[in-house]
């Protein structure tokens, strides 16, 4: 493993780049291969839903807490889902203490947008009484180990957390919200399964799932979220530029890779079972 405590040298950059040109990667993957996903649902007893997800050595533990609050005035009959990410210094010497920086806000926002625009969270079902009471979901991601591509790991982690969640079901009694004794699970909370897929770019070479050394040397990244049929959000970051053809190619590639990944991960198996 590459030591993250130092700056990647020009010679290492060249080495990684030359290998990529030959369609070879340091860890033996092909250009369009993911590292292995490992998923443990319901890792946290205190949370209503949670997931411990590893993508290679990158590891994120996500948990869900809820609150009953008043809805936004422009969406009076919809629940709210907010996503937060913390890059804690425990995960890497590259992370520092303090309020969320650009990188953690980007991670939270990209994962959030991928989920928000895909009709993933059943916001209408999370409304107890229009204009009065809705569920507010807090999905909080903590990066435990950083070895590149936090976005894809975070996306699967947030999705698994939502799927595994069990929310106490509330009803409106005319004045207040009370617990019915039942729970919302699985399909009550989640509808579509959008997956976010990230590619790195060095010069004119594009590859899937950059690991840490690749992320440190690459010119830029592009993250594409998609459901089974549609692209739902895109985020380009870094100084790389992409041609129109490349974007087109990556979008169709994302649908194809997304389909396979969705099938391989089979996230619905992590749905909470309530007797």
């Amino acid at each position: 493993m590459m030591d993250v405590k130092r700056v990647i040298s020009t010679i290492e950059r060249k080495y990684i780049k030359n290998n990529l040109k030959k369609e070879e990667r340091l860890d033996g993957r092909g250009l369009w291969d993911y590292r292995e996903f490992k998923i443990t649902p319901n890792f946290v007893a205190a949370a209503e839903g949670s997931a411990d997800v590893s993508l290679g050595e990158t590891r994120i533990i996500t948990g869900l807490k809820y609150d009953i609050g008043t809805p936004f005035p422009d969406l009076p009959d919809e629940g709210v889902c907010t996503i937060m990410a913390e890059l804690i210094p425990l995960a890497s010497p590259l992370f520092e203490r303090g309020p969320p920086d650009e990188q953690s806000i980007e991670l939270a926002r990209v994962v959030d947008r991928g989920i928000r625009h895909a009709d993933c969270v059943q916001t209408k079902k999370l409304c107890i009484e229009a204009e009065k009471a809705v569920y507010i979901l807090f999905v909080d991601m903590y990066v435990i180990n950083y070895e590149g591509n936090l976005i894809d790991c975070g996306g699967v982690s947030a999705l698994t957390t939502l799927i595994s969640a069990q929310l106490p079901e509330g009803k409106w009694n005319g004045e207040d919200v009370e617990w019915t004794g039942g729970y919302f699970t699985g399909k009550d909370i989640v509808n579509e399964l959008p997956l976010v897929i990230t590619y790195g770019k060095i010069d004119d070479i594009i590859f899937l799932d950059p690991d840490l050394p690749e992320e440190l040397v690459c010119d830029g990244r592009i993250s594409i979220s998609s459901t089974e049929e549609k692209i739902t959000s895109i985020q380009k970051s870094g100084v790389a530029t992409f041609s129109f053809d490349e974007i087109k190619m990556l979008c169709s590639k994302s649908l194809e890779i997304g389909k396979k990944l969705r099938k391989d991960l089979n996230l619905w198996q992590y749905k909470a079972n309530i007797e």
Partner: peptide, 17 residues
């Protein structure tokens, strides 16, 4: 030493800061 609790580690969600 920096002791920190995750927001979801307790019954009521803890504020992130």
């Amino acid at each position: 030493v920096f002791y920190r609790m995750a927001t979801y580690s307790v019954f009521d969600r803890k504020r992130p800061a």
